[in-house]
Computed example of a mutant assay.
Amino acid sequence: MTVTESLVAFLLAAGLLTITPGLDTALVLRTAAVEGARRAAAAALGINAGCLVWGAAVALGLAALLAASQLAFEILKWCGAGYLGWLGLQLLRRPRSGIERAAASPAGGRLDWFWKGLAGNLLNPKVGVFYVSFLPQFVPHELPLGIAVGGWCFLLAGIHVLLGLAWCSGLILATRPLARALQRPGVVRLLDRLTGCLFLGFGAGLLFARR
Rank of each mutant, 00 (worst) to 15 (best):
L17P: 03
L190M: 14
E35D: 13
R96V: 08
F134M: 08
N121V: 03
C79E: 11
G120H: 11
C197A: 11
Q70K: 14
F208C: 08
L163E: 07
L178T: 14
A81G: 00
L91T: 13
G36E: 06
G201Q: 06
L182T: 04
L135Q: 01
C168I: 01
C168P: 15
R176E: 04
L200C: 08
L135E: 15
R193K: 10
L122Y: 09
W152Y: 05
G80E: 13
G108Q: 00
W115D: 00
F130H: 02
L122W: 10
A40P: 01
L89K: 08
G203P: 02
F208R: 15
W113D: 01
A103L: 03
A107R: 04
A204C: 01
T2R: 12
R94F: 07
A32E: 02
R30Q: 04
L7Y: 00
G117M: 12
G128Y: 02
L198N: 11
L198E: 02
G46R: 04
G109L: 10
A49P: 07
V132H: 13
L52E: 02
A174V: 03
P125F: 02
L182G: 12
Y83P: 06
P140N: 01
P21S: 00
T175R: 15
A57E: 06
G61H: 04
P125D: 07
N121S: 08
L118G: 07
C51I: 15
L162D: 05
L17D: 04
P140E: 00
G170A: 02
I159C: 06
W86R: 05
G80D: 00
F138R: 10
A64T: 13
W113F: 07
L23S: 05
G170R: 05
A102E: 03
N48K: 12
W54N: 02
A37I: 10
G201Y: 09
R184Y: 10
L191M: 14
L135R: 01
C51T: 15
T4L: 10
L71Y: 04
V129S: 00
A32L: 14
L123S: 06
F114V: 07
L194M: 08
F73M: 00
E35A: 15
L11S: 12
F10C: 13
M1W: 04
V149A: 03
F134I: 05
G128V: 00
K116H: 13
A42Q: 11
C153V: 06
C197M: 13
W113H: 01
G98Q: 09
G46P: 05
A9K: 08
A33S: 14
L89H: 09
L145A: 08
G128N: 03
R180H: 09
I99G: 10
L145V: 15
R96C: 04
A72D: 06
A68V: 02
L162E: 02
A57K: 02
P144E: 00
L92C: 00
L76E: 07
T31K: 12
E100W: 12
D112T: 09
R210M: 04
E142V: 13
F208H: 13
W167I: 11
L111F: 14
W115K: 08
A14G: 12
P185T: 10
L118H: 00
A9P: 09
I99R: 07
A59K: 05
H160P: 05
M1E: 07
R110A: 09
G55I: 01
L60N: 14
L23A: 05
T20Q: 11
R38L: 15
L11N: 03
S105F: 14
R184W: 12
L162S: 06
Y131A: 11
